[in-house]
Amino acid sequence: MNDVAIIGVGLHPFGRFEGKSAMAMGVDAIFAAVADAGVEWGDVQAATGGSWTVANPDAIVGMVGLSGIPFTNVFNACATAASALKTCADGIRLGDYDIGIAIGLDKHPRGAFTEDPALVGMPRWYAENGQYLTTQFFGMKANRYLHDHGISQRTLAKVAAKNFRNGALNPNAFRRKPMAEDDILDSPMLNYPLTQYMFCAPDEGAAAAVLCRADIAHRYTDKPIYLRAVEVRTRSYGAYEVNTTCAPVEEDVSPTVYASRAAFERAGIGPEDVDVIQLQDTDAGAEVIHMAEAGFCADGDQEKLLADGATEIGGALPVNTDGGLIANGEPIGASGLRQIHELVRQLRGEAGDRQVPGAPRVGFAQLYGAPGTSGATVVSR
């Protein structure tokens, strides 16, 4: 079995790009990643990619070069990019090829995610009563969690304000204007306790990562980042997560718990070893919840950690240093590879004004994709 290294990352900025297709953004991300890796497109021997809005992202080879490589399409909702990364890495680990690329791209219309639930096997009434990928579900989930663990609504505002500050330092972010906590709290209430600016926005963008066998990584870069683990897990029967009304009342833990534990076990690294963290912040409540689910704190400890500045760029647990989804928005297929792009930049010491101090060595990324798939990734220098 081969170890795997990330030798290049590329990103098309996230935001709104009138007249530019998701595929065109994907082309830009691919060429940026290939250039960053110090290879040519002809050196890439396999690709994996995913998108919500593009039915066949494999067609991108017609835009970057018809080299005949195998291309595997994947889709796992918001966990799509983690799935693409894992599929690419597994091919290298098994010795099928030496160099591969993982790609994510999407272009969403303005507004909340309200796609047809039938696309993921759910009955239409699930959307009609406000529970499918809408602000209603996220509000209900955050409200219950805050109530159960004694966390204030202001803590949610702290999460959003922190991510807006970090986004202001990120030239590729969608929202690049800091926002005060009080302004976030005073913005229109969408679904209690979540106000307008506690949510991410569906938008547009693309990202890519070039992977290779770890033993040949130094041929291409003097700063390889090693992919220690990528684990994907689905929800168990009864888990308290999206689509709970199709499960019994008894609750289990989120698939994020299982994916994170599996990733740390495979990597031989614990949460206490992580220097920089990327968590899915579809809303501010999600970041709070995922902090505990991924193992970085106990349920209820988030209030003090946020108040003490632990999750700031200079804190003990820097979370979403590039602004996360709240500042970047979410083109579903690309979000997870945006996380990897940020972790690679951080571990290389190339994150500029948002660089975590102290030469970080270990990074962690987490994604949660409805209706119940979670991905967790561990990388290190």
Rank of each mutant, 00 (worst) to 15 (best):
N2A: 14
D3K: 09
I7N: 01
G8Y: 12
G10Q: 00
L11N: 09
F17G: 00
K20L: 14
D28I: 09
A33C: 11
V34Q: 02
G50Y: 04
V54P: 05
D58W: 08
M63F: 13
V64G: 07
L66K: 14
N73I: 10
A77R: 02
C78G: 06
A79D: 01
A84Q: 06
C88S: 11
D90T: 14
G91T: 05
L94N: 12
G95P: 01
G104N: 08
L105M: 15
P109M: 09
R110Y: 14
G111I: 07
G111W: 09
A112V: 14
A118K: 15
L119Q: 12
R124A: 14
Y126A: 09
E128V: 05
E128D: 15
L133P: 02
L146G: 02
H147L: 12
D148N: 10
H149K: 09
G150D: 15
R154P: 01
T155A: 15
T155C: 13
A157I: 09
A157G: 10
A157Y: 00
N170E: 03
N172R: 10
N172A: 15
A173L: 06
M179L: 15
A180G: 15
L185K: 08
D186S: 13
M189P: 03
N191Q: 04
Y192S: 14
Y197I: 04
Y197P: 06
F199K: 00
A201W: 08
L211Q: 04
R213M: 03
I225M: 11
Y226H: 15
L227V: 08
E231Q: 14
Y240A: 11
Y240K: 00
E241Y: 14
E241Q: 03
N243M: 14
P248N: 13
P248M: 09
E251G: 03
V253F: 11
P255Q: 00
P255S: 09
P255C: 06
R261N: 07
R261D: 00
A262K: 03
F264T: 05
I269R: 08
G270A: 03
D275H: 13
D275L: 11
Q278G: 06
L279R: 02
T282H: 10
D283G: 07
A292S: 15
E293R: 00
A294Q: 09
F296T: 04
G300N: 09
G300Q: 06
Q302P: 08
E303K: 11
G309K: 03
A310G: 03
E312T: 07
I313L: 10
G315F: 04
P318R: 01
P318F: 00
D322P: 03
D322A: 11
D322Q: 10
G323H: 09
G324F: 02
I332N: 04
G333Q: 02
L337T: 00
I340V: 15
H341C: 13
G349M: 01
E350V: 04
D353Y: 00
P357T: 03
G358V: 07
A365H: 01
L367M: 15
S374G: 13
A376E: 07
A376D: 12
T377L: 12
